[in-house]
Amino acid sequence: MSPIISVSGLSKTYASGFTALKSINLGIKPGEIFALLGPNGAGKTTLINIICGIANASSGEVLVDGHDIRRDYRTTRSLIGLVPQELHTDAFETVWATVSFSRGLFGKPKNPAHIEKVLKDLSLWDKKDSKIVTLSGGMKRRVMIAKALSHEPQILFLDEPTAGVDVELRKAMWDVVRTLRASGVTIILTTHYIEEAEEMADRVGVINRGEIILVEEKAALMQKLGQKRLKLHLQGKIDAVPTPLAAYNLELAGDGTELIYTYDTRSEHTGITSLLSDLRAAGIRFSDLDTTQSSLEEIFVSLVRA
């Protein structure tokens, strides 16, 4: 399947001389939820801003649905809805007016029924005649989402949608996102929170210091997550793993006083029972044991620190 967004060799150096993106290559599949994960200042917003037309790229190319974002900006931009990271709103407009304005701006003829649906989905219907200045922060964020959805985009960018949002609203927001995906909308979201990526995304990309350092199916990441390490603290020191235990792929650590066994928690046979009896048969005794699980958080941190 050809990607709906294809970024190649994209670099961005700001006027200050700071290089925020270094030759990014990335493909987004149609209909997926893609989570872009990265620490502060990694370049997430910069990347989104370039794709949406808010910032200019220094070099490289972005195609949206096969169209160049510069040459065919009308086509590419009408496909995209953007919810920016910051809450930028016209304080004295009503919710209804600002959402209708967005629809017009994106060249779509009036459709009150659609706007009504969007506002209802986001639980904003009873606020439709309120001025934005009178809304709470979470409601303002929903207004921003409503604006982005007002013109029925095929692709939705959510730049840190859950910053400053309470648990309930977060859940409601994910429901909206899931419904959108079910209707075929491609969603790209950025977040600092791994759980969020874990819960929502089909694929996860990690960006750090302007470079994409990993793009993987969430399932594959979960695979890594599913791995657990069993550490056995031995009573004595051994020089090598005894041959009868070779099949277990044991690692020797702690100068021969520890044995480490890696297994998959989700498989039916973890192999722990047989390992323990084989150890006894080999005459290896241990004084203690513990297990650790590598979290996505750890994978992420180790990637970013590297």
Partner: peptide, 14 residues
């Protein structure tokens, strides 16, 4: 000044 220009810039307008 208030940042709402983002929407104009990201819209399919010349």
């Amino acid at each position: 000044f208030i940042g709402t220009i983002y929407e104009i810039l990201s819209a399919p307008v010349s």
